[in-house]
Design a protein around this nucleic acid. Structure first.
Lengths: 140, 140
DNA sequence: TAACTACTTTATAATTATTCTAAAGTATGT
DNA sequence: ACATACTTTAGAATAATTATAAAGTAGTTA
């Protein structure tokens, strides 16, 4: 059993509203993900490695996957893909865009891109969201 | 050894300019990919299955991967990713955009989307390309 | 608070997409 | 036709992810 102070409250709430009991492992993951100022981009493998590095008792791979999936399904994380068959997650869930620069990802705030013309959705469908990827290369 | 008629010429040229000798397997793959009116979206697994289904002598997985990679590196195929950790390829190499509708991909011609505002590239970088994904959902 | 039950964690196995390997086969220049 | 470098192939290896099932824990209830 663990004592949890009020600072953990929002992390626990995120877990509960994702349908997850706030176990110690999950609360730590949630804190690690959301207790930061800047947006965080990660793969499950990266998350696991950076959290487990400093821990004597490691959290298992399955728990990382389960927790990340539930948080994503509940809308607390956004998933995206690069061309390397790995899922990336973004703690910035506001609709926004990305620069991709050789595997590095940089957020672009939504209001930095506006459209002059957009196509209509096919019949019977509507637009859920619009995301722009700007691929970068070196300037020489 | 195989006789090749002039209809195969462009397929052979695509292979040669991708640095590949035009073997029978490769010519058949190239024909299968490029001898069609409409743009074609596929995964390597799908390509392999649909080609091998009708063949007595199957083409190996490695050959499909090798050929697709070389054609992609030479610019004859475009790679893109969905959120399922699988690489998709597109025979439409003109810069264009996509609707994503539950795993189904529909091309959007480049001129259907225009921008009013785009951010500058970070210092030392320039924009290689800009791609838009419009995610769809059912309309009810 | 003790006991119960459903949900969790974990190590490990299984799966999926992809890449590697090395032996047998083939395209191409001479 | 020869030689050689490039290919094909089956199968092994790798990487990311998901599934399994036994041991552990949270939350409810008496």
């Amino acid at each position: 059993m663990h004592k949890m102070n009020s600072k953990n409250k929002t992390f626990i709430d995120k877990l509960r509203s994702s349908g997850l009991r706030p176990t110690n492992q999950r609360v730590e993951i949630s804190k690690f993900l959301f207790n930061r100022k800047k947006t965080f981009h990660f793969t499950v493998e990266e998350l696991k490695n950076s959290m487990n590095l400093k821990r004597s008792k490691k959290i298992s791979t399955a728990t990382f996957y389960n927790t990340v999936h539930a948080l994503k399904s509940a809308g607390y994380l956004k998933e995206f893909s690069l061309e390397n068959n790995t899922s990336y997650y973004d703690t910035n869930i506001k609709s926004h865009h990305h620069f991709f620069d050789n595997g590095k990802v940089i957020d672009i705030k939504s209001d930095k891109i506006t459209f002059q013309k957009l196509p209509d959705a096919p019949k019977g469908k509507k637009i859920k969201n619009v995301e722009v990827v700007i691929r970068l290369e070196n300037n020489n």
